[in-house]
């Protein structure tokens, strides 16, 4: 009896060790591309092409690649455009979705079903189907290569509307009823009672929107030539330095490190935001 319990314990201990080994191997696999990106960014071109798998640390860490990349592209401007784009998209999405989500969850109004169908249709349709006409609209407004062009497809969000509607649906009704008895009108109920209660979903939507604005490549590439966010700028840098990998890695480091730092600081919010928003779609 005793030996059997011992065996079970032993095998579960072995299992736990195996689990840790697998987790460490996967972590290593996830991190290698980042490590190699950073290390290469500090190498000279010759050094990077004499790769010896057992000597991977740059002989003398040098910043030339960063200087070359910054010389050919104004990174301060890229950061500025990217931050403005993210902030703009987040504000637009959270604002419109918080309003519309509340109406769809709690108010009875004419045409509600039809309008909600529009939201659901947009959610289910692949976004590429909108791109040609969206481009033509921006073009005919004479707004190609502007900040407006970058913002354009993200001014409203069906996904966010749906997400916020779900959040309001989960709130008890008596809160609003009490406020209405106190003489609040619907606008006041929304602003002072209901909207503050879905803050978690607003944050989730904000994070979701920010990540996707930062990752977006196809749209900025199509509408803009000079006013570019980081992702699209990387594409044009790659065209410029085709095989000069140390410079390309330096650009990748400059483009990714700020976001990684923000992520590491707020990782809990990122993960919870994605779990909330991503699972609701």
């Amino acid at each position: 009896m005793k030996t059997k319990a011992g065996n079970v314990e032993k095998s579960s201990k072995l299992g736990r060790i195996l689990v840790y080994i697998i987790l460490l191997i996967v972590s290593f696999t996830m991190l290698v591309p980042f490590l190699w990106m950073v290390l290469t960014a500090f190498m000279t071109q010759t050094e990077s092409t004499q790769v010896n798998p057992f000597v991977i640390i740059p002989a003398n860490w040098q910043l030339n690649n960063f200087r070359d990349v910054i010389d050919s592209m104004n990174f301060m401007r890229l950061y500025g455009v990217t931050v403005a784009l993210i902030v703009g998209r987040v504000i637009a999405a959270v604002l419109t979705a918080t309003l519309a989500g509340y109406a769809f969850a709690r108010l009875e109004f004419f045409g509600k079903k039809v309008l909600f169908t529009i939201v659901v249709v947009q959610l289910m349709i692949p976004s590429q189907i909108f791109i040609i006409p969206q481009f033509q609209m921006v073009q005919s407004l004479g707004q190609l290569d502007t900040f407006f062009a970058l913002m354009f497809p993200g001014l409203v969000t069906a996904f966010g509307t749906f997400l916020l509607r779900q959040a309001y649906l989960g709130l008890p009704r008596d809160l609003e009823e009490a406020a209405i008895l106190d003489g609040c009108n619907i606008g006041q109920v929304f602003l002072f009672v209901m909207a503050p209660l879905v803050k978690a979903s607003m944050v989730a939507l904000g994070i979701f929107t920010a990540i996707f604005a930062y990752r977006e490549l196809l749209w900025p590439l199509i509408v803009n030539r000079t006013l570019l966010p980081l992702s699209a700028a990387l594409a044009s840098l790659q065209g410029q330095f085709v095989t000069h990998f140390p410079r390309l890695m330096a650009a990748a480091v400059l483009a990714t490190i700020p976001m990684i730092i923000i992520y590491l600081i707020f990782q809990k919010h990122f993960v919870e935001g994605i779990a909330t928003a991503g699972g609701k779609l």
């Binding site: 972590s27 996830m30 990106m37 992702s231 990387l234 790659q238 890695m249 976001m259 990684i260 993960v271």
Partner: peptide, 19 residues
């Protein structure tokens, strides 16, 4: 572990592809 596994998601695919 969670932070590490999720890391690629917050990097622009353009940078991922370059690396």
């Amino acid at each position: 572990f969670r932070v590490i596994f999720f890391l690629p998601m917050i990097v622009a695919p353009a940078a991922v592809a370059m690396v």
